[in-house]
């Protein structure tokens, strides 16, 4: 892989430019600070409404209640954004793998030890999200970290899993979310509304699927190319240098 030159031909911007911009940014910061400063020191926001309905949401952690129940639209669309970003990265042809012949023995040993711990911790975060800080995003991030560790050790997804199986896991969260959301539309409820007595289980189910999808998507974003495409088959960029 060709190294990206960070310095490029970048001439240092002139003192005048830097000074003008610096003063402008200072004024901007000052006016924003004034705006924040003039806000009331006590503001409940929506916390009263959140607390009032948290018992009907199926979970006792208010953040999870907001994410997966009150404003599940946000979370649904956000899973979509994550998937779109991944498709975008894949469609760009990807980065040719930065192969190093040297495998760091410390990294190798540590990953063997840490990756199972990460996976376990991810499951813990997913479970604990119902009643304490945690949830699908945090669990997904930890899962993705395990994936990043594996990729740093030149680990490769077996080819038989990199096709349909990978894509299935990637879309699982979004598909299950939409399916459950629409499922109750036929039972005289609005889109993404869950019956209170089922909400806890449904949220855990959606979060479990979302954790897998988020974790694998983030790890795939780190890899930067479609693993089912051979890494050495560079896509022709149409530029002949």
């Amino acid at each position: 892989m060709r190294k990206i030159k960070l310095k490029i031909l970048e001439k240092k911007p002139s003192l005048f430019t830097r000074l003008t911009l610096g003063i402008l940014m200072f004024l901007l910061a000052a006016s924003l600070a004034y705006a924040v400063w003039s806000l009331p020191t006590q503001a409940l926001g929506l916390s009263a409404e959140v607390a009032k309905n948290v018992e009907m949401s199926g979970v006792s952690n208010p953040v999870t209640a907001v994410l997966l129940n009150y404003r599940s639209y946000d979370t649904l669309l956000e899973l979509g954004v994550l998937l779109l970003a991944l498709f975008g990265v894949w469609s760009l042809g990807g980065v040719s793998a930065n192969k190093s012949s040297f495998v760091n023995p410390i990294l190798d040993f540590l990953s063997r030890f840490l990756v199972p711990v990460f996976i376990l911790f991810s499951g813990y975060l997913l479970w604990v999200g119902g009643f304490a800080p945690g949830g699908a995003f945090q669990a997904g991030a930890v899962l993705a970290a395990a994936g990043v560790l594996l990729f740093l050790n030149d680990w490769q997804l077996e080819r038989k899993y990199s096709g349909f199986s990978l894509r299935f896991v990637l879309v699982l969260g979004l598909v299950l979310f939409v399916a459950i959301g629409f499922g109750f539309v036929f039972l005289d409820r609005v889109f993404l509304e869950y019956p209170p007595q089922l909400a806890g289980g449904l949220i855990l189910l959606i979060e479990a699927a979302a954790t897998l999808s988020i974790g694998i998507s983030l790890a795939a974003l780190f890899l930067g190319r479609d693993p089912s495409v051979k890494s050495d088959s560079k896509i022709d960029t149409g530029v002949h240098k």
Binding site: A43, L44, S47, V50, V63, V66, L67, D74, T75, Q138
Partner: peptide
């Protein structure tokens, strides 16, 4: 307890 709505938005925003 702090307002949960901005917190949830920030989590979404981070991803």
């Amino acid at each position: 307890v702090p307002d949960a709505v901005p917190h949830a938005m920030v989590i979404t925003g981070i991803v």
